[in-house]
Nucleic acid binder design. Structure first.
Lengths: 110, 110
DNA sequence: TCTATCTATCGTACATTTGCGATAAACTAT
DNA sequence: ATAGTTTATCGCAAATGTACGATAGATAGA
């Protein structure tokens, strides 16, 4: 096994899953996603009412969620409406479900 | 809404979910968890054969997974056997499932 | 006791993340 | 044109994450 992270290729699924997970790895972003998936639909920056963060910080979190593909924004000046990106959301859900499908209930381990 | 991250309390579920997600937010740790959940059972540091990383780095990743509660290690000198922490694994699976349960299939959005 | 094996931890370097205020950009409405 | 509203981006500081080699600790076996 190569001892260099550079030349190694993780599988596409592994990379995708870790990317989604990383995007979920901050409580503010969980709040945003919960908010977006509760609102039956889209949404703009009244996140300022929901999160204890500066506008610029929230904008940054939105950008990360967008870069991860979990949400998308529709410019509707001067506002921007954010929604869950449904296909990627579905894909993410499936990747997590696959990872956690083992239940170990009948395995006598350790 | 307070404009200070310090004094704000995220809900327990949100914090727990983001903590689990953060632990999953690196491909090496995904590999480790997949490996541990495929082996029907426990495991030690033959992760060196699986990952392109130095032993110390792998040890660090294991520590993060352990700190997040996703795995546990049983010292069995000079080796250490790592296993999925089943109850936390189950809890994590449920938290993710809850987050992703919406399917949006009948909502006309954006 | 000495050696070999396995793992954790330390120290270090570099990159990324998180947060803020200030500012710019884009459009509406006056 | 001007002013107001909303959001993104810049610049900065502090904290955290990632990776490595070197070293320490714990134990089994010679």
């Amino acid at each position: 096994m190569k001892r260099s992270a550079r030349e190694f290729e993780y599988s596409e699924d592994t990379l995708q899953l870790s990317k989604f997970a990383k995007a979920l790895g901050h409580p503010a972003r969980i709040i945003i996603l919960k908010h977006l998936s509760n609102q039956s639909c889209c949404f703009t920056g009244d996140l300022l009412e929901v999160l204890p963060l500066a506008q610029s910080t929230i904008s940054q979190h939105l950008k990360e969620l967008k870069d991860a593909g979990l949400i998308e924004g529709e410019v509707n000046p001067p506002k921007v409406r954010y929604c869950i990106n449904e296909s990627n959301w579905k894909a993410a859900g499936e990747l997590f479900q696959t990872l956690f499908k083992e239940d170990f209930s009948n395995i006598n381990c350790c």
